[in-house]
């Protein structure tokens, strides 16, 4: 890895039909940095996140992960055919709002599946590692439970362990606490906070202002497919410069 940022986005554009969801996003994220993305629904923050691991292919612009251009020739089928999805998916982990655990597998099997099938690691090694990861997220006693027997917070922690099992260098979190009952939010945020403290590079789409303030190195406010304002959490959250940021924060705090 050179001296460049961990993740660099240059002029990312994405549209769904006529709707232009991302309208030119530029962003640098350095190693170990935690970037929290705020914004009203429909502002493009989830799409942006999903572009970073090419789950949504951008139509224009460049994305660099550890100085490697991962979406050369964006917008053309020929260009997309050359993308190294394997490199991207192994470097970048994602956790979803709806957990998306595999319901026919136990917690442990959810975590071991990708290393086993994708990296061809021996079963014993993946089991051992998955057990460690699940212990780390506080689920040592739930290894053999199926997802439907776990609470939302527990499922989400399994999902985090599952993503970590691929040893990602960057983790993406897509509103991971939005589907949780309020009393379960903390256990998930605690795991994320710990991950941040250990130096993981993270992009976190969230409505949890407290988390953004405490854990975030940078806060980004998005609206209508663009980055409206960015800076240190204290600056953006307490002294927003832009009208749209003020209005949004006002609405969130009113809740």
């Amino acid at each position: 890895m050179g001296g460049g940022p961990m993740v660099r986005l240059e002029n990312i554009h994405k549209r769904f039909g006529k709707l232009e969801v991302l309208r030119g996003i530029d962003l640098d994220i350095s190693q170990g940095e935690v970037v929290c993305v705020l914004g009203p629904s429909g502002s493009g923050k989830s799409t942006l996140l999903r572009c970073v691991n090419l789950l949504e292919p951008p139509e224009q612009g460049e994305i660099f992960i550890e100085d490697r251009d991962i979406c050369k020739g964006a917008g053309s089928a020929a260009g997309e055919a050359g993308w190294e999805l394997n490199f991207v998916r192994q470097r970048v982990g994602i956790v979803f709002q709806q957990f998306n655990l595999f319901p026919h597998k136990t917690a442990l099997e959810n975590v071991t599946m990708a290393p086993e099938k994708v990296l061809d690691k021996p079963a014993e090694e993946t089991r051992e590692k998955a057990t460690r990861l699940l212990e780390r997220v506080g689920l040592a006693d739930k290894l053999n439970e199926y997802p439907e027997r776990l609470s939302g917070g527990q499922q989400q922690r399994v999902a985090i362990a599952r993503a970590l099992a691929m040893d990602p260098h960057v983790m993406l979190f897509d509103e991971v606490t939005s589907a949780l009952d309020p009393e379960l939010v903390k256990e998930v945020l605690d795991v994320m906070r710990e991950l941040a403290n250990e130096g993981m590079t993270m992009i976190v789409v969230t409505h949890e202002l407290g988390f953004a303030r405490e854990v975030g190195d940078k806060v980004i406010f998005m609206d209508e497919g663009k980055i409206v304002e960015q800076g240190k959490p204290a600056d953006v959250l307490d002294n927003p410069r832009e009208e749209r940021t003020k209005k949004f924060l006002g609405l969130v705090l009113e809740r």
């Binding site: 691991n53 789950l55 999805l85 394997n86 998916r89 192994q90 982990g93 994602i94 979803f96 709806q98 998306n100 655990l101 595999f102 599946m113 990708a114 099938k117 994708v118 990296l119 999902a159 599952r162 993503a163 691929m166």
Partner: peptide, 21 residues
Amino acid sequence: PRGQMEAARSLGMSHRQAMRN
């Protein structure tokens, strides 16, 4: 659900691996 394919692909599985597993 669509999220199942997305989760599998995001973990690095190919379409084929995701289908099968």
